[in-house]
């Protein structure tokens, strides 16, 4: 298929359709409303369900219901809306049903603004909701990668019966780039639904999906199984990209939009004779700690650049365990850090 010039939000929506999305429930919020706009006509066109719910809380609970029925389901929102969904994330995690969530992050805290931000890193990787669980968090740095990661999110959600969140930001959502959409997958037929799904129990024992376990011992067993699953995901699904790390003595670590901006910084620094490389986490959870530790052991410093006050930097410090200095550079409120301000930070190391 030929490349087309496509906006990030539209690409995310169309990629979901092609990955076999059967039902979408959501509520509009800038800077991701184009996802709903696209799905609002494309889903009915494909004979699938699009429903604008009355709120984000309703959306995530509709997602929970559809997921229990074994339907490929997604919602999308931006930062304040994601906060409203957190109770639902926790129920979905405990019930072990697959769901895809898109967060096109905007400036916060509070109502904030609609400019690009990475302020929800902690929320995506550490505090997705109450209780002990993680979501798989995938961070695209381009429109093409957003498409690829939406498809991957559906596959990982299905494989591990978990939430997979695509953590984008306003810049990825609003920008246009040439990209190639995947071919259309057939939608699952009713008889192809997973065996655990709630499909009516005709001629079989009823399935039970719940997140309520009144016995402490039983709930601990559920938790232990969940933790074992999370360890499996961490072992098998950690993803990242490296750029010019082969001889790097200084390492930039950045994700999403800032990750690609740092690619420009590497080029400019190399042109000045500095040996600089970039590690860009693609999965924010699970985090590429092992690889980072290996790179840190042969470098003399790491600069973590983010569109927040310094959140991922905590995971970088945990990963490298003090074996080299780790500095943080962050812009907040929707301000995007540009190469001409990152390069001096790097020179000061």
């Amino acid at each position: 298929m030929a490349k087309e010039l496509i906006e990030g939000n539209v690409a995310i929506a169309e990629a979901a359709i092609r990955a076999g999305l059967e039902a979408f429930y959501g509520y509009p919020i800038t800077p991701q409303t184009e996802i709903l706009e696209h799905l609002s006509w494309r889903m009915p066109q494909e004979g699938r369900v699009f429903l604008q719910a009355e709120s984000e809380i309703a959306s995530i609970n509709m997602v929970y219901g559809a997921a229990c029925a074994g339907v490929r389901v997604m919602t999308s929102s931006s930062s304040p809306g994601i906060s409203l969904m957190q109770e639902g994330f926790s129920y979905i995690a405990c019930s072990e049903v697959p769901a895809v969530v898109i967060n096109v992050m905007r400036g916060g805290p509070g109502l904030g603004n609609v400019q690009p931000s990475q302020g929800d890193y902690f929320q995506a990787v550490k505090m997705a909701g109450h209780g002990d669980f993680h979501m798989i968090a995938l961070a695209p740095a381009s429109v093409q990668e957003a498409i690829d990661l939406v498809v991957l999110a559906f596959d990982l959600a299905d494989r591990y019966r978990t939430i997979a969140m695509v953590v984008a930001d306003g810049a990825i959502g609003q920008m246009m780039e040439p990209a190639e959409l995947p071919p259309m997958r057939p939608v699952r037929r009713p008889e192809e639904r997973p065996t655990w799904a709630l499909t009516g129990a005709k001629g079989r024992k009823p399935n039970i999906i719940t997140s309520l376990y009144l016995s402490a011992e039983t709930l601990e067993r559920v938790n232990l199984a969940l933790q074992a699953k999370l360890r499996r995901i961490a072992a098998q699904e950690t993803r990242w990209k490296e750029y010019r790390t082969e001889d790097a003595e200084l390492l930039l670590v950045a994700f999403g939009t800032v990750g690609r901006i740092c690619q420009t910084v590497v080029r400019e620094a190399r042109a000045l004779g500095m040996r600089v490389g970039l590690l860009r986490p693609i999965t924010l959870w699970p985090f590429p700690s092992t690889r980072l530790a290996a790179l840190a052991s042969r470098g003399r410093g790491i600069l973590v650049v983010e569109m927040n006050a310094g959140q991922m930097v905590e995971d970088v410090r945990l990963a490298v365990e003090g074996c080299c200095p780790v500095q943080s550079y962050g812009r907040m409120g929707g301000v995007i850090p540009l190469p001409d301000e990152i390069l001096p930070e790097l020179k000061n190391m």
Binding site: L5, T30, P31, Q115, G170, Q174, M175, M176, E177, P178
Partner: peptide, 9 residues
């Protein structure tokens, strides 16, 4: 090529 707009209310 990349195209990115200023956007807002």
């Amino acid at each position: 090529v990349t195209w990115i707009p200023s956007y807002g209310p």
